[in-house]
Each structure stands twice: as structure tokens, then as C-alpha cells.
């Protein structure tokens, strides 16, 4: 049996549990919708604009930085696992890799991508 089969089962069962817990309440819970109740929370006032407006670009920058750094991290894992096999060559390569990463990191820092002001 593939070791991934239990994982698939686990995913399915977790999903089922979520779905069941949501749907089972439909039988027992009351349902009395009214207009005010169905409005979005805005400190008790009637909402006055759509929420989906433009927000700080900082979030995007963080997202991009994450994507880059996370992918770089992914490279570290196989290397770490195979560390004994790749030897000094792998070590040097990865040091170079990290140095390059650090350059990028400090660049982002200096450019203020990490500031939140």
C-alpha cells in the first residue's frame, strides 16, 4: 500500500468532518433572516461602501518576498537531506546560494521592502 493512500484518506475524512459539522446544524438551528441581520458588520452603522477596495501595496510586496524566499527554502531541504552525499561541493554551492540569497535579502531590506510604515 502506498504511503500516500492514508494521507489521501486523511484529507477526505477531514473534509467530510468539516462538511458534516456545517450541514448537520441545518436541521436543528433556527433560520430567521432579516435585512439588518444580513448586513455586514460596520460598527453598527449601515455599510457605506464596498469592502473590496485597493489596499496597501505592502501586502503584495510581502507576498512576493514570501514566494521568492519560500521557494529558495525549498531548495535547502533536498540539500539538507542529501548533505552527506554531496560533500564539500554541495556545501560550497549552498553557501554560495545562501550568499546570493542574502544579497537579495539585504537589497530588499535597504530598499525598504521590509518596513511597514
Amino acid at each position: 500500500m502506498s504511503p500516500y493512500l492514508p494521507i489521501a484518506l486523511m484529507l477526505i475524512i477531514s473534509a467530510l468532518i468539516g462538511v458534516i459539522t456545517i450541514s448537520v446544524g441545518v436541521i436543528v438551528r433556527p433560520n430567521k433572516p432579516e435585512k439588518v441581520k444580513l448586513s455586514v458588520y460596520e460598527c453598527g452603522m449601515p455599510e457605506f461602501s464596498d469592502a473590496r477596495k485597493r489596499y496597501s501595496v505592502k501586502f503584495y510586496i510581502i507576498a512576493m518576498l514570501f514566494v521568492i524566499f519560500d521557494v529558495e527554502t525549498v531548495f535547502l531541504f533536498p540539500w539538507a537531506v542529501a548533505f552527506d552525499l554531496v560533500g564539500i561541493f554541495g556545501l560550497v554551492e549552498m553557501i554560495i546560494f545562501i550568499i546570493i540569497l542574502v544579497f537579495g535579502y539585504f537589497y530588499a531590506w535597504r530598499k525598504g521592502a521590509l518596513e511597514w510604515a
Binding site: 473534509a15 462538511v19 459539522t21 456545517i22 438551528r29 433556527p30 444580513l38 448586513s39 455599510e47
Partner: peptide
């Protein structure tokens, strides 16, 4: 929590709204 009324506000994006907690 199980017995409480499940309020789904009008303006929400329903499918996403339901999938999110899952």
C-alpha cells in the same frame, strides 16, 4: 455553536464563504 443561527450576510461571495472554513 451547533444550535446557533447561521447568518450568511447578503453581500458575501457564497461559495467562497463556505469553502473558506473548510
Amino acid at each position: 455553536l451547533l444550535m446557533k443561527e447561521d447568518i450568511v450576510p447578503d453581500m458575501v461571495d457564497k461559495p467562497v464563504y463556505i469553502i473558506a472554513p473548510l
